[in-house]
Simulated assay, not measured.
Amino acid sequence: MSVFDLSGRKALVTGGAQGLGAGMAEALARAGAAVMIGDVQEGAGKETADAIGKSGATTGFVKLDVTSDSDWEAAVAATVQELGGLDILVNNAGIEISALIVDIDPDDVRRMCEVNILGSLLGVKHGLRTMRPEGAAGKGGSIINVSSVAATIAFPAIAGYSATKSAVDRMTKVAAQESGKLGYGVRVNCIYPGLVATDMGLGLASDMAKLGLWPSPEAAVGDVIGLTPLGRLGEVADMADAVVFLASDAARFVTGIGLPVDGGMGM
């Protein structure tokens, strides 16, 4: 059996309705896991779950506002009940609002902190409570947080976003320490995705042009590629395969790391 085989495991992916989250959910299902999509977008989330289910995978959808503690409690409980457990949690949900520091809107920063920091931290909280020996699932597992290359480089107009994604990296390491020392049996890691041509990624390039930092979105993308040793943008599959690795037995002795999946941009 391959060390990347996830047969029999149950996963919850936040922000799984579209973009990176949908790709991660699909990759986990392809590796054999049953997958619950958690998202605030009910229509898109159910469509994604149904599409993945057509391959024969067990899937489901649960409405989840990651900033709500009660939503998290309900979503994790629904995953355990419908899928029969919880072994993998992917904290992917996040937002990015671009602004020059001189034009920062405090409400925008608060919103990013709520979704990116608090949302991920609540996910870790409920993931650990459920996967630890006395939890509802109780078999240990893997939590994968989605940080960003923005946590490792300086790039204009994303100060607030970079700060929140740096926080995701730090909370990952603390959670890995707590899980190990308390015998939870849960590995906690994060990935740093590079720029991917999703709606969020292309929106960022468009924002750079609107702010006058680059003459066009295409020019912004071109410079990002120029900063990337592998010479291209990231693809959804690049990020999804990294999640499968960290969820699998291939990473059985890996915890507390931040894995760059950025083509070398953040080195």
Rank of each mutant, 00 (worst) to 15 (best):
W214I: 06
G38W: 07
I117L: 13
E218R: 00
C113R: 08
Q177I: 15
D5E: 05
E47W: 02
K181M: 13
T14N: 01
G15L: 04
N189Q: 15
E235P: 00
G141T: 05
V115E: 01
A78H: 02
A150I: 12
N145D: 12
T255V: 14
P217V: 06
V124W: 06
V3M: 10
T228M: 02
D71H: 02
I153T: 00
M267P: 10
G135N: 00
M239P: 01
L259G: 10
G203T: 12
V254W: 05
R170N: 10
K173A: 11
A220M: 03
M36P: 11
P106A: 07
A220R: 03
Y192A: 07
I101H: 13
R129N: 14
A151K: 00
K139S: 07
D108T: 13
S2P: 04
A25R: 01
S148D: 14
M36E: 09
G53D: 05
A151P: 01
G84C: 09
I104V: 12
L246T: 11
W214R: 07
D5G: 00
L83F: 15
A159V: 15
I52C: 10
I101F: 15
D249S: 10
V102S: 14
G135Y: 02
L230Y: 08
E42S: 09
Q18H: 13
G264E: 13
I104Y: 14
V149A: 12
G84A: 10
G185C: 08
A77H: 04
G60T: 09
G15C: 04
A22K: 14
V149H: 07
